[in-house]
Structures are given as structure tokens and as C-alpha cells.
Design a protein around this nucleic acid. Sequence first.
DNA 1: TGACTACATGTCGGATCTGACATAACGTAG
DNA 2: CTACGTTATGTCAGATCCGACATGTAGTCA
Lengths: 110, 110
Amino acid sequence: MREQKRRKLEARGWKIGTTQEFLRLSAEEAAYIDLKVRLAMGLRDRRRRRSLTQADLAQRLRSSQSRIAKMEAGDPSVSLDLLIRSLLILGASRRELSRIISTRSPVPAA
Amino acid sequence: MREQKRRKLEARGWKIGTTQEFLRLSAEEAAYIDLKVRLAMGLRDRRRRRSLTQADLAQRLRSSQSRIAKMEAGDPSVSLDLLIRSLLILGASRRELSRIISTRSPVPAA
DNA sequence: TGACTACATGTCGGATCTGACATAACGTAG
DNA sequence: CTACGTTATGTCAGATCCGACATGTAGTCA
């Protein structure tokens, strides 16, 4: 969440905390979701870099536009397995996967 | 496969090639399996380092001994999702996951 | 030899995930 | 405004995965 938006919401009476606090996630669940978000972002980046629409990508992955949308959104109905297989099909190397996973947080600490 | 063993088998008339050649896997499939094997090894290492039996670990993960065995064997019935979640529950950090994934090949090139 | 421990393998009902489809929401060019 | 292209959301049948259980295999100790 961007600083500006945070201040705006706080001004309207919202309490701001980490997603983890709010949903009372265990450390593993939080790490799992964090990982999923990273992979999702990695997938979206790769798709955009190639100027593909979600529909285009769906065809390559033999999936559907709606599932691509869910993947990129980190939807709970999407497994890490599918995200990783998709990245591999897009030609991501283990090294790149590794980088995607260990990159600095996509969501700045609250 | 170790060099010594390879020579021994070749002496007995076996043709030696990569697993990929033999099973005619696509690059993605090969990368997927390679990844699975790495995670499987990572899981086994972590378990052994703690001197836990598969049954012990199963209890912690709320799974079963047989599934742990399949995980460590990289069985096709086990998803990356389960392997990764298990590692996270064992306290593996993103950095460690990243290292497991990008480490030099567990199966030396043929 | 048998008894015990740890790990591997096969199977199956139920849970979860996936692709497909419909449709809604968003942006933007005319 | 409408029309179009793209992305998001909801649903569902069929596919896949998971935990559990039974059973098999391998090693050790007496």
C-alpha cells in the first residue's frame, strides 16, 4: 500500500495494519501468500514484457483467460504448482525463479 | 549418476543418456521434475538434520508417513505446492527456498 | 530365526484445483 | 454516448491431489 493512500485511509478512520494481523495468518500462511504474490507478479511481468494479452498467454499455456487473471491476482484457487509451471513454460530458468522468490518484498512492510 | 557407476553399466551394455532423452520430456517437464527433485531433497535434508522419522514429520505437517515418503521421492502424485508448503512449515525462509531451487544440479549432467 | 523400526508402494474416498464459459467492469477511441 | 479490447469475477463439471490405511521391503538386534 502506498504511503499516500495509507494516510488517506487513516484520515477516514481506518486502522492500518499488516495483512497478517488482519487475517490472523500463521507465519507459514503469510509466507505462502507472499510467495504466491511474487510468482504472480513475475508472471504478469513476463507476459507484459512480451506484449501479450491474458488471452494470448492462455492459448500458449493451454489454459483460459480467466485462469490467467486469477493467477496474476494470486487467487486462492490457484496453486503454486500452476504458477511455477506457467513460468517454466514461459522459459523462466531456475535461476530466474529463484530470483523472483527471493526478491525484496513486493509489499513494503507496514 | 556417478561416473563410476555409469561406466559399470555401460560395460554391461546399457546405453546411457539423460532422463530427458529417455522419457522424451519437454524442456518444461524436465525443469519441473528437476525442481521437484530439489525440493524433495531439501525436505529430506531438513528432516534428517532434525533427526525426525517420516512418521514424526507427518505428525507435524498433519499428513501421513506414506505421503512424506512420496514427497521425498518426488512422486508424480505430489505437487510443488505441497512440497513448498511443507518446507515453509519447517521454517524454511524464502531465501532458503531460493537457494534450494538454484543450487547446482542434484543430478550431474550426463 | 522372529520382532522391531524406518521407509516404500499401492489404493481409494473425499477434498482441492483447473479449464471453460458467461458475464461484469474498466479503459479508450470514435 | 456506443463499440471494442482487455482484464476481473463467479460458477461448475471433471481432473488432479491429499490423507489415510494396508501392505511390502530393508536393516538391526537378540
